[in-house]
Design a protein around this nucleic acid. Structure first.
Lengths: 257, 257
DNA sequence: ACAGAAAGCTAACATCCGTCAATAGACGCT
DNA sequence: AGCGTCTATTGACGGATGTTAGCTTTCTGT
């Protein structure tokens, strides 16, 4: 598991847009968000399938996903398990700051762009911007909440519904970061990826995709999902967005101190 | 989902022992640990099956498990899903401090004793004892790591191995909090509980228990597991303790600042 | 346009698991 | 001791999923 070489592209892309409209948005002022963008020391591009950080490898920086999808993976002799997905705006390895070594790999799903912040800088943030530090804690708590929902999904749903639930979650999370979805979600996921996320074989993932098509719920082609009835899809997947803390509960900045 | 009445037993039990030898231990000095014990405003006892905190209920305090086992559960019309277990020394709803409302229930597995800390007090801690605040963040990161392992377990193992993995995890976590296990782990878990943790039916959990017995790996009677070869059990469950960050990685206090 | 590679698809069979039904054992209560 | 309830156990059947194998489609590079 080697870290693949990255192209540093800081000079080519402006970061002063709304790329950081992600998960941290709830708890931070515009000033804080600009402050965080300022922390980013470089932006890198990585190719599909490259490993941005390997399990057990020590690191002295953390990465914010700017564009693309990232998997958390664990590998055994002949299988890969995906335990989570990150979307733009997510800190993909913030916990590496505290734990020093991750228990899983950070893997690019399709081409990605990440912003890098050194742990030295984060130490200063922790000391001097308690509001930002708290927002980072919230972000890791939200990761845990999503993990719990994945556990429930694996315990509760069959393969077809798991895939539907996966895209239902993506739909809502993309909305939460301001990327509204109309009739399609485009991803670079293969059916192998879906299988590794849902804990089924690739062949069974294929059956599930076919079943979603037969049921008229969604059409999935090469990772891209098309539907004209998101509510029906979400109902089929028994999707309940509460766990994403999209509205009220996470907005606790005002009643902290 | 009602919160059942609790017996307040502060006066009957001394807290100045090593009950808080739990997960926070790595990152804190004895002084810090004594400080945390001092935060506890009351100790309560709850009966088996009682709900200590319901999903969506606002709360203004957090609980440290002092004695017993606690489940994180989610319930649908006719099923219950267990997404995690807590052991003595764990903060069971620390994330309620930041999120205000939990997305799941906190449920007693057997009789439990919990120590309560008001969020008002925690706010002060966050401001005045950054070392303790960081330890709390670490604790929630460890929760997330355990969640990821559960996801992997559900994706990877059959029912028999999942149950073995569950007890393998308990064995290691109990060791990490100084409760060394010899030949038996005693729990109040029913086979229904095991089923809800492993995402299988109770009848299939029973088959799995029988299979562990037939294979000579372990004997499980009413939640209590007996074995004379923990290594064989862990190998069977493909258990790898890295995700519990038992030794090095979590001990980062010294190189923080 | 073409070839090779990657991804998607299908069929057949075995295993894992859920459900239903029924029974046996363990525990608490009176 | 006797009763009821909760828990554990077993058998039979069907559905869900894994595995193997082979085939088709789509992408990509030249």
């Amino acid at each position: 598991m080697n870290v693949t070489p990255a192209k540093v592209v800081t000079e080519a892309y402006s970061l002063t847009g709304d790329f950081l409209a992600g998960r941290l948005r709830h708890n931070l002022s515009t000033d804080d968000l600009n402050y965080i963008e300022g922390l980013i020391e470089s932006v890198e591009e990585h190719d599909d399938g490259s490993c941005l950080l390997g399990r057990g490898v020590k690191t002295d920086r953390s990465m914010i996903l700017v564009e693309g999808y990232i998997f958390r993976t664990v590998k055994t002799a002949n299988k890969r398990f995906i335990t989570g997905i990150n979307l733009p705006g997510d800190f993909v390895d913030l916990h590496g700051f505290a734990l020093k070594r991750l228990d899983h790999n950070i893997e690019a799903a399709g081409r990605v762009r990440v912003g890098c912040v050194s742990h030295e800088t984060l130490r200063d943030v922790m000391r001097e911007r308690p509001g930002v530090a708290r927002a980072m804690w919230f972000a890791t708590l939200l990761d845990a909440a999503i993990h719990r929902k994945w556990i429930q999904t694996l315990e509760q749903l069959d393969a077809t519904r798991r895939i539907a639930h996966l895209y239902a979650e993506l739909h809502t999370r993309l909305e939460l970061i301001g990327r509204n979805v109309t009739r399609a979600i485009r991803t670079p996921f293969t059916q192998f990826d879906m299988a590794d996320m849902c804990g089924v074989s690739a062949i069974h993932a294929n059956r599930a995709v076919g079943k979603l098509r037969d049921l008229g719920i969604a059409e999935i082609r090469r990772g891209d999902l098309y539907t004209n009835d998101w509510e029906a899809l979400k109902k089929f997947a028994q999707f309940d967005p509460d766990y994403l803390y999209g509205d009220g509960p996470l907005k606790v900045k005002e009643d902290w101190d």
